[in-house]
Computed example of a mutant assay.
Amino acid sequence: MSDNEGTPVVPQAPNGPGLLIHAAGPLEPDTLAGILRSSANARAALEPGAAIEVVVQGPGVRLLTADSPVSETITHTRQLDVEVLACANSMRSAGLETEDLTAGISTFPAAVAHLAERQWQGWAYVRP
């Protein structure tokens, strides 16, 4: 199933490990914008094609909506080939549906499981 169709989607792991940036808890717009800028900086500094994901968990998922003050920053980050992912459990707690999200954001069922899987696959984990 593709992005924003109503059912959680676990993105496919790329070939080789990547960088996982974990944004958890309540987030202010400036905080999430800074995390997204960090992912853009990583994109510029890492080898071409390196996989980068920003995983948003907790009440901060509210900042991933189409009407968010950081939706433009999210779109720019996605254009840099950085995946922005929302935890479906967190979305449910926040009363959000996938169609509420900024275009291009993928979802997955549970952040804790996704984080573990990526680390088992050899991904680097960063929590700003």
Rank of each mutant, 00 (worst) to 15 (best):
T77F: 02
W120F: 12
V82Q: 07
H76P: 07
A23P: 02
G6F: 00
I52D: 05
R62K: 15
V54Q: 06
E97K: 04
G104T: 01
L20T: 02
E5K: 13
E117D: 15
R118D: 00
E53T: 09
A51T: 07
Q57F: 06
Y125E: 00
R62H: 13
S38H: 14
T77V: 01
A111S: 08
V54W: 11
A51C: 07
P8I: 03
E97N: 09
V70Y: 08
I52H: 03
W120C: 14
T7H: 14
L19C: 05
C87D: 04
I74P: 07
C87H: 02
S68A: 01
A66F: 03
L32V: 03
W123I: 03
M1I: 09
R127Q: 11
S71N: 13
H76A: 13
G122D: 01
L32T: 01
M1D: 12
A103Q: 13
V55H: 07
A13S: 07
L80G: 06
T102F: 12
T31A: 14
A50P: 06
M91S: 00
P48M: 06
C87V: 00
L80I: 07
T31F: 11
S68V: 05
Q79A: 14
L36D: 09
E117I: 06
S39Q: 04
H114K: 10
T31N: 13
H22S: 05
P14A: 15
P14I: 08
A24D: 13
T31K: 15
V61D: 05
D67E: 10
P26C: 00
E28L: 11
N89H: 12
A51E: 09
L36Q: 10
T31V: 13
A40K: 15
E99H: 12
A103T: 10
E97L: 04
E5N: 15
V112A: 09
E47M: 13
P29L: 09
N4D: 09
A33W: 01
V55R: 01
Q12R: 12
S106I: 03
W123A: 05
P59Y: 00
R92N: 11
P69I: 00
L36H: 04
L64K: 11
E83N: 06
Q121M: 11
L96F: 01
W120I: 08
G34T: 07
A116S: 12
L63V: 02
T107I: 05
E28G: 00
M1T: 11
L36M: 11
L85R: 08
L36P: 07
T7Y: 15
A24T: 10
G34F: 06
D30C: 01
G58D: 00
P29R: 05
V126E: 09
L36G: 00
N89L: 10
T7N: 13
T102N: 08
T7A: 14
A44V: 04
W120M: 15
G16W: 07
E83I: 00
D81F: 10
A13W: 00
F108D: 07
E99A: 01
A103S: 11
G18E: 04
V70A: 06
N15S: 12
S39E: 06
A124I: 09
R127L: 08
S93P: 04
R127D: 04
D3F: 10
L64S: 08
E53R: 08
